[in-house]
């Protein structure tokens, strides 16, 4: 298991506590919570061998659509594919930014 802490510039936006996914084979859980720091703090636990660069690339791809909100994001990854990771990240951000507080 590898752990990474990635810090990204972020915009000020109201967010809801959000949790999507689960830590089962080929999947991941993504949790978004409020944070006092003026940035996006992303903490990653991953059982895959992909390094920090791949995570950074994935996050940059998501940022291309819209900048991240100020938040704390935790990712618990059980060897998910990049496609699944991207889906979960987008799902989590969408819920955090648009819906009422929700997790399942």
């Amino acid at each position: 298991m590898d752990t990474f802490h990635i810090v990204r510039p972020a915009r000020k936006a109201p967010i809801n506590q959000t949790l999507v996914g689960y830590v089962g084979s080929g999947d991941l859980e993504v949790m978004i919570d409020n944070s006092d720091s003026p940035q996006a703090d992303i903490y990653i636990h991953s059982s895959s061998s992909a390094g920090e660069q791949r995570w950074l690339a994935l996050i940059e791809r998501i940022e291309a659509n819209q900048p991240l909100p100020m938040m704390r994001m935790d990712i618990h990854d059980f060897s998910a594919t990049p496609g699944v990771i991207r889906l979960r990240l987008e799902q989590a951000l969408e819920q955090a930014l648009t819906k009422e507080a929700s997790y399942e």
């Binding site: 298991m1 830590v23 949790m31 935790d74 618990h76």
Partner: peptide, 20 residues
């Protein structure tokens, strides 16, 4: 709740990804 962040104290030290 998961936001209380009470994860297993024993999994990470064994290299296993925890769940919130």
């Amino acid at each position: 709740t998961p936001f209380d962040r009470v994860i297993s104290p024993w999994l990470e030290v064994q290299g296993i990804v925890p769940q919130f």
